[in-house]
Design a protein around this nucleic acid. Sequence first.
RNA 1: GGAUGGGUGGCAGAGCGGUUGAAUGCACCGGUCUUGAAAACCGGCGUGGGCACAAGUCCACCGCGGGUUCGAAUCCCGCCCCAUCCGCCA
Length: 422
Amino acid sequence: MLDLRWIRESPEALDRALGRRGEPPAAARVGALDAERRACQTRFQECRQRRNALSREIGRAKAAGEPADELIAEVSRLKDGERDAEEAERKAAAELDALLEGMPNPPDEDVPDGTDEAGNVELSRTGARPEFDFAPKDHVELGEALGLMDFERAAFLSGARFVVLRGALARLERALAQFMLDVHTEEFGYEEVSPPTLVRSPALFGTGQLPKFEQDLFRTDTGHWLIPTAEVPLTNMAGGRILAEEELPLRFTAFTPCYRSEAGSAGRDTRGMIRQHQFQKVELVSVAHPDASAGEHERMTRAAEAILERLELPWRRVILCTGDMGAAARKTYDLEVWLPGQGAYREISSCSNCGDYQARRMNARFRPSGSKATRFVHTLNGSGLALGRALIALLENGQQADGSVVLPPAIRPYMGGCERLE
RNA sequence: GGAUGGGUGGCAGAGCGGUUGAAUGCACCGGUCUUGAAAACCGGCGUGGGCACAAGUCCACCGCGGGUUCGAAUCCCGCCCCAUCCGCCA
């Protein structure tokens, strides 16, 4: 949600921001609706003011025992005009709100311009890619050969885009979650949270998934939505609240399942575990002071990178261009892990600074100490990391010629000392 | 699922249909007192918006939406949410 006052002051900045996002200019329309709304409001308020004054006079007349019929008749005559003005105001306001609610967050100045993922810019590469003296397999081959990954059973149970993990692989997923949570809570100061994974509409409106991206979500017949990411409940921890300045930053981490309908992704990543309707993820969320959010963004991204580092996985950091960023984000780093079976880097974490965009939508504020006014907080979220993809990365990078998989030392304590899947 | 009770300012909590935007307390801000702090006392203190250069002034907001009325936080209807009890259940 954008700040109407900001648009009023610098409409050209809005159109520039929208242009960078590949959206048509809207400042003129916003300005017109805003002016319309204000004109109607003024008209309405003048009517109402007259009516209020007359009503007060009626009260006084009645109290004094004087007749008030004449005044009452006059008030009745005023009503139609008032109703029209109010109706017109409401219409303009509704259209204006819908317009503002649908607009994406203006990108940060240092976000590169671009229309799609081809415009993303690689910032760094870390970790050595493994060298194989055989043709590396992908995780599907590896997992199925080990008898630990079963897509057929999953299809039998749930259809396409699901998987059944068994034995050591099921345990590996749990081990990874445990490992990530430990690092984030013990070393980066995140508070572990176990949130609901069914939420109501306002929570999803707050983070920006609703109303625009309803088709990406699953919904229950009780009207609840299955969360597409723990960003939703964690960020909403601050929703509707007025925090004390000293409470900032809030740092939350959670391990939850995530549900996505993948409505628009037919035919993409249909093989394996890359893109599923359901996957597990350890999420990071920070609620920060506006002056501190840029630094918090770097810090959060490093926390996610720390996981990759300890799992000895090769990755690169990419900054998303204006055309590839989510609507709520003002700046996003993607971490992409190397997958030998795909011969490509694939997203395993996405860390975004949303500025005050979500905070406005969910009314998340803080009170600067000594001030009576409130300000919107900044919200940030990042994967720390997606578990399915981390698991894939371990399989494909740790694979041996015989089809077994060597696990990195960092995860072994969580696997009861197990060093190798075979 | 059934039955009650309830949703008012940052929080707690009043509010006969007519200057109630709303008592009171806490918190907060300023001041007096004090070597300093606390206490006590005095004063201030909701949000959003329109108009105005401004002082200011006006409008809206007591969960949400309708209705009754000249006038609604207060009466009526619908919806949402919360709490408690019962039933069911991991």
